[in-house]
């Protein structure tokens, strides 16, 4: 009996180790430990063994059973490992490029606009929006633009025929003409008319000028304007905002300066220069970046805000111009061609 058990282990060891597939394994398992298996058969002989030998033999049988199980487990593990390996196929060449396209990219104007909005959001400006088709009232009248101001000229502004109707762009006066807004300041007017002070908005958006397209001009371009209306808003607050914006955008060493200027809807008005020493392709110490000023009392009166109570500032700039300065782009037309070699540079 003892010899038979040893012989069984000796036979099973190479046989089980050589198993390749699951059916082979199942068959072998049945041959040894199945109901009709060899080991099972030997165990059944226990009854014929003299009583005094039974404990020793029982122990031996259990040991053998344990050894066979170890062999079976090892064989199964080996088969499972082989099965996993079979799923893999040959090893990859990790240096081959991925055939997938991408990643996607944001347009540089979006990147600059969103960065500006994030910076302004931190000091409480929310983004406002308004129609691109506007009326003479919202684009000019409400902004204190004289009736014969050149900006209203058909030479400079796109108009729609008197018969045109835009169902979801409200008119102030029934006989005013529709036009394409020349600045996003019309959003300020709509926001003030719709809401109540205090107001703190930034309005980025597309604007239109009837102009020859060249390296620095485009029939449509984008502006970004800020409006803050509250009590006791001062010139100093306006300067602080500009300092904050450009220090956030370009680093703490960036300085701004105001030059007195004239705009119809602010008083006093300023042009804003930016210290340009660390901007690419700028060879001047200062570069003009936008216009700003304290909201003119006339504008407040026109939207029904008491100019004795409310004060405020407005700031506006061109987004293309800012993007061109930040990235060192020297032709505005690149923004509208969408050459992927351009678009992929800014992601």
């Amino acid at each position: 009996m003892q010899d038979q058990l040893s012989a069984l282990v000796a036979k099973a060891t190479p046989e089980l180790a050589a198993l390749q597939t699951r059916p082979e394994f199942e068959a072998a398992k049945a041959r040894y430990v199945g109901p009709n298996g060899e080991l099972t058969a030997l165990m059944k002989q226990m009854g014929t063994v003299p009583k005094e030998q039974r404990p020793a033999l029982g122990k031996l049988i259990n040991e053998t059973k344990g050894r066979v199980q170890v062999l079976l487990d090892a064989a199964l593990a080996q088969i499972e490992a082989a099965e996993l390996t079979a799923q893999l196929g040959p090893a990859v060449d990790s240096t081959l490029p991925s055939p997938d396209i991408g990643p996607g990219t944001y347009h540089p104007l979006t990147l600059v606009r969103e960065e500006m909005c994030r910076i302004l959001r931190k000091v409480g400006f929310t983004v406002a929006d308004g129609p691109e088709v506007e009326t003479e009232y919202y684009c000019f009248d409400a902004l204190n633009t004289p009736a014969d101001h050149p900006a209203r000229d058909e030479k400079d502004t796109f108009y729609f025929p008197a018969s045109s109707r835009f169902a979801n762009v409200s008119k102030k006066n029934p006989d005013e003409k529709y036009l394409l807004r020349t600045h996003t300041s019309s959003v300020q007017i709509r926001t003030m008319l719709k809401g109540k002070p205090p107001i703190r908005i930034v309005s980025p958006g597309r604007v239109y000028r009837r102009d020859t397209t060249d390296a620095t001009h485009s029939a449509n371009f984008h502006q970004l304007e800020c409006l803050y209306v509250d009590k006791n808003v001062t010139v100093r607050d306006l300067k602080a905002l500009l300092d904050y914006i450009f220090a956030s955008l370009l680093g703490k060493d960036t300085k701004t300066r105001f030059r007195p200027h004239y705009f119809g809807y602010t008083e006093p008005s300023f042009e804003v220069d930016l210290s340009a020493t660390h901007l690419p392709k700028v060879k001047k110490p200062w570069i003009e970046i936008g216009g700003c000023g304290m909201v003119d009392p006339t504008v407040f009166a026109d939207v029904g805000y008491d100019p004795e109570v409310w004060s405020g500032y407005a700031f506006g700039m061109g987004l293309e111009r800012l993007a061109m300065l930040l990235y060192g782009i020297d032709d505005i037309r690149y923004f509208y061609q969408n050459d992927l070699r351009f678009l992929k540079q800014f992601a």
Binding site: D100, G104, A219, N220, Y336, N338
Partner: peptide, 25 residues
């Protein structure tokens, strides 16, 4: 509108699209 534009642009750029800007006219 701003939230909408931001959501859809994030979605499309996240799906490997390149954002373009074309003229309105």
């Amino acid at each position: 509108i701003v939230l909408f534009n931001r959501r859809v642009t994030d979605y499309l750029v996240g799906h490997d699209f390149h954002e373009c800007v074309n003229y309105t006219l």
